[in-house]
Simulated assay, not measured.
Amino acid sequence: MDDNNQDLMRTIQMKFPRLSKGQKLIAEYILKHYDKAAFMTAAKLGTSVGVSESTVVRFANELGFSGYPKLQKALHDLIKNKLTTVQRIELSNNLINQENALKGVLKADMENIRATLEKINHKDFEEIVNCIFEAKRIYIIGLRSSTVLAEFLGYYLNVMLDNVKIVKHGISDAIDQMINITDEDLVIGIGFPRYSARTIEALSYVQNKGTKVVAITDSLLSPLATRAEYTLIAQSNMASFVDSLVAPLSVINALIVAVGLREKEKISSTYKELEGIWEEYQVYSHKKEDL
């Protein structure tokens, strides 16, 4: 089953008459509490409705999934754009608690990076690097929790290229800041669930002006990806109510390094000059704290 294109809830409703008694209990629970079911193991879901773990697995197979993890992912995809922060906090109790917070979050972030490495399109990555060098001006937009990613990418690209503008949320609207954009420019849009409406609007605006768009987001079905010519996929599955930005930041790091490798001589010269400035104005502390 292609869980990207099927309406999961409708599929369950259509299959319902043919399900076994135990499978119907699972179906009813998911239809009513899909937000909670998404964070349950097969064993926990079975316990919640009074059936065995194997019945849960067979239920997933009956829906067309190769196993329960695939069904769980479909449920997760269904809810991740709809949950409020309050709902995330409530649901996070199923995933993580005070005692295992450190281990649980680090393991989840490791899984996000592993999945990103498998999903990312290496050809698109190289094409995006080419686009960065070909662009007359580069605009980077990432709002809400993605602001930190946009600032990080913009800071390093601007040191190397000098033609980078970070579109910021402030007094002027994002579109106002890109009013003079042309088809010779490049826009890099960064966004993860819950996607910023302002970012989506800005990408639609520049797309209509014929500007090339690159998206750094979590899925090819993301509203950012549907407005982009090139997309870098970085998994950001949450371990709790806080969005995981570890994999996106790692992808952005790789992009910065790839650009830097093409501009070795310029970067070396720039940083030599910067080191002099930093030393003169004591930007960094060289003192060790007295023990």
Rank of each mutant, 00 (worst) to 15 (best):
A197E: 11
I79C: 05
E99W: 06
E265Y: 02
L117P: 02
K80F: 04
V159T: 11
K287F: 00
P17E: 02
K24T: 01
I89M: 10
V164I: 15
G64T: 00
Q282H: 06
S52D: 07
A135P: 07
V246D: 03
A150E: 03
E273Q: 15
K36R: 09
K73C: 02
A42D: 00
R58T: 01
K209C: 03
D77T: 04
P17I: 08
H33E: 09
M14D: 03
Q282W: 00
L19K: 05
G191L: 08
Q98F: 12
T231L: 11
I113H: 02
Q6L: 14
W278V: 01
T147F: 09
T85L: 15
T217H: 07
K123R: 12
L249P: 07
S222K: 06
N61Q: 07
M160E: 04
D176V: 15
K73E: 12
S20C: 05
T41E: 00
L117G: 02
L19W: 02
A74L: 05
R88C: 04
E90L: 14
T116M: 04
F133Y: 06
A43E: 02
K288A: 03
V251R: 10
H122Q: 15
L245G: 03
R114A: 12
S269K: 14
D185C: 10
E201P: 05
L143F: 01
A197S: 13
Q6V: 15
T84A: 06
S250E: 08
P248Q: 07
K287Y: 00
L83N: 01
Y68N: 09
T182I: 06
D35T: 04
N61K: 13
T270S: 13
E201L: 14
I179C: 12
E28A: 07
G67E: 06
M160G: 04
Q282K: 14
S285P: 08
G50P: 09
N93V: 11
L203N: 03
I26R: 10
Y271W: 09
S146A: 15
V206N: 08
Q98N: 13
N163D: 04
P193M: 05
Q13I: 14
F125P: 12
V167P: 11
N180I: 08
L274A: 08
G67P: 07
L149Y: 01
H169E: 14
F65C: 07
S222N: 02
S20I: 05
E289P: 02
N163P: 07
Y205Q: 04
S66R: 13
V167H: 02
N81Q: 10
Y284K: 15
R198S: 11
D290K: 13
G210A: 09
I138Q: 08
I190K: 10
A43S: 04
I12L: 10
I256Y: 01
Y34G: 00
Q98D: 10
G154R: 07
N208M: 12
F39L: 08
N130K: 14
A150G: 15
A234N: 14
A150C: 11
Y230E: 09
I141T: 13
G22P: 09
D2K: 13
V129W: 04
P248R: 14
S285W: 00
F65H: 04
L83D: 00
V164H: 06
S48T: 05
I12H: 03
K123E: 10
D162G: 14
K103S: 13
